Computed example of a mutant assay.
Amino acid sequence: MPAVNWSQRGKESDATRYGNFAMEHLINIILKNGGRKRISSPSCLAAAIC
């Protein structure tokens, strides 16, 4: 496996990594403050009404 050259990463990948971290952080804060996980069924997603 070739070594990763971190200095050659693109700005898009850095933005994606930051966005993923920010979204996960936001979700964790919501869950800590009483937000509930709800797993939607495929039929619920198709109808867009749950």
Rank of each mutant, 00 (worst) to 15 (best):
S41N: 09
R36Q: 15
L31F: 05
T16I: 15
M23R: 10
S41P: 00
G10V: 01
A22G: 00
R36Y: 03
Y18F: 14
K11T: 10
P42E: 03
N5T: 06
R36C: 02
I29L: 13
S7K: 12
N33G: 05
A46Y: 06
A3R: 12
G35V: 02
N33K: 09
M1N: 07
A48Y: 12
V4M: 13
G10K: 15
A3V: 13
H25T: 13
A46K: 12
E12S: 09
T16P: 01
F21S: 07
N20G: 07
E12F: 02
P2W: 04
V4C: 02
G19R: 13
I39Y: 04
G10E: 14
C44H: 03
I27V: 14
A46L: 14
A3P: 04
A15G: 03
R38V: 13
R36N: 11
R9A: 10
S13H: 08
S13L: 11
A15T: 08
E12K: 10
A48P: 00
L45E: 04
C44G: 13
I29C: 07
N5P: 01
Q8K: 14
Y18P: 00
I30T: 00
E24S: 05
I49G: 01
S41Q: 12
E24P: 00
M23P: 00
W6Q: 04
S43K: 04
A47Y: 07
P42V: 01
F21Y: 15
I29D: 15
A48D: 14
L26W: 08
I49R: 14
I29V: 09
S41L: 11
A46S: 11
C50E: 12
P2T: 06
Q8L: 13
Q8V: 01
A48W: 07
P42W: 04
A15D: 15
A46Q: 08
N5E: 13
I29M: 13
H25C: 06
K11H: 07
I49S: 13
K37I: 12
R36E: 14
N33L: 07
C50S: 15
A22P: 00
P42A: 02
L45R: 07
G34S: 02
P2K: 06
S7D: 15
P2Y: 02
L45H: 01
P42F: 03
Y18C: 01
S7T: 11
R17C: 03
F21N: 12
S41K: 10
P42Y: 02
M1E: 08
A47R: 09
K11Y: 06
P42Q: 07
G34P: 00
G34F: 01
T16A: 13
M23S: 05
A22W: 11
F21E: 07
S41D: 09
I39S: 04
M1V: 07
F21M: 07
H25N: 12
L26S: 05
N5M: 03
N5G: 03
A48K: 15
I49T: 10
I27N: 04
G10C: 12
A47I: 07
M23I: 08
